[in-house]
Structures are given as C-alpha cells and as structure tokens.
C-alpha cells in the first residue's frame, strides 16, 4: 500500500497537474489560433461591454430568462458548480498536503461544510443523471460520453466522502479518491468538461453577437 500511495500521490499527481495546466494552455492557444485562421472577422464585433453583460447575467442565479424558466435546474446547477469548485480547493486535507509538498497554503473550509458540499455534488450528479435519463429533450442530445463525464466528476466526491467518513476499506478509498481526482484533472481540458475554461468565451461571443450584430436586448 505504501508504494501505491507514494506513486499516486507523487509522480502521478505531477502528471495530472501538469496535464491539467498545460492542457488548459494548449486548448486556449489552439482556440485563438483556430479563430484567427477560420473566422478572424469575429474580432470586428467582439465587445467587452456585451461580453461582460452576458457573463455577469449568466453567472448570477436567476439572472437570465432561461435560469428563471427552470428554477430547480438553476438552483441545482449553481449549488453543484459552487461546491464542485470550492470544496476541493479549500479542503483542509488538500491544503495540508500541498503545504507539505510545495510550501503553499491558504484559507480552508471547516470539514463539516466541505462534507455537505461533497453531498451537494453527489446529489447534483444524481439529479443530472436522472434528468438525462428521463427528460425527452435532454435524452435526445445525450450520448454515452455524457454519462462517462458525469461519472468522472462524481467519482472524486463519492470516494472522498467514503474515505473521509472511514466507513470501510479506508486505504482503498483514499487511493481511489486520488486516482479519481487525477482522472478528472486530466479530463477537464480534453473533454466537454473544458466548458470550465470555454464557457466564458462562449458567453462573450454570444453576448457580443447579440449586442453588436443583432442589436438585441438578449444575451
């Protein structure tokens, strides 16, 4: 178990973090290169004002008509994403390990709060799964990869929750938890989880087109 733990928390963690950050850089540069090559004219109407209008409305709960139309989906989406992003970054156990490895540390969440956030992510994943299985309009655009991506996101939280509570098989769940986190980090730049980086650009583009070209009040 020592060797496996040392491997997944050592070299494999390096690989995952490097793939994550390098992958994000690559995808961003690639996006800009593609736009310059294929559709450079969009730069003529990209607007900071309309970009921000779109981004700010969409990151505000109930800030758009679409968010207001599906209140339950809106609440779940926001609770899910906030918990998903904040809990791993501000988890005491994670910060402790980064402090030991890299001498960096910052503010941390109380464990009890992080525990609830993990449950929110797990419940949110179930909600999205059921939604994909039952809602006709969602089912229609769902493929196998959507389920795989959902599993990749849920796995670190399920294993983390089980490990934290030490219900059973503690060392196994810690190792599975680390592996699951690493798989998710690597998957972010190279799957549709890349909406983590691209959603801002998508909104900026949509906002600019609606504001500058269509002169619409929509964003």
């Amino acid at each position: 178990m020592h060797d496996i733990y040392s491997f997944v928390s050592g070299p494999l963690a390096w690989v995952a973090f490097i793939a994550f950050f390098a992958g994000i850089m690559y995808r961003l540069i690639d996006m800009i290169v593609q736009v310059i090559k294929k559709e450079p004219f969009i730069f003529t109407y990209m607007s900071l004002k309309y970009s921000l209008r779109s981004i700010i409305h969409w990151i505000t709960p109930f800030g758009t008509l679409n968010w207001r139309r599906n209140p339950i989906l809106t609440i779940v989406t926001f609770a899910f994403h906030i918990s998903l992003i904040l809990s791993p970054i501000f988890l005491l156990s994670h910060v402790t390990l980064w402090d030991e490895a890299w001498n960096i540390s910052w503010w941390t969440l109380p464990d009890g709060v992080a525990d609830i956030m993990a449950l929110i992510v797990i419940a949110g994943s179930l909600f999205f799964l059921i939604r994909r299985l039952t809602q006709r309009e969602v089912k229609f655009v769902t493929s196998t990869s959507d389920y795989v991506i959902l599993a990749i996101v849920a796995a670190p939280f399920v294993t983390g929750f089980l490990a934290y509570h030490q219900f059973f098989g503690y060392p196994i769940f810690v190792i599975l938890h680390i592996l699951a986190g690493e798989i998710m980090l690597v998957a972010i730049p190279f799957t549709r989880l890349s909406h983590m980086i691209f959603s801002l650009f998508t909104r900026a583009y949509m906002g600019s087109e609606f504001g500058v070209i269509r002169k619409s009040k929509d964003y």
């Binding site: 020592h2 060797d3 733990y5 503690y170």
Partner: peptide, 9 residues
Amino acid sequence: KKGPVMCGE
C-alpha cells in the same frame, strides 16, 4: 515504508 501515511490511518 512502514507505518501509516494516509490521513485517516
């Protein structure tokens, strides 16, 4: 390579 190394150990 002996003794506990994971948090909950």
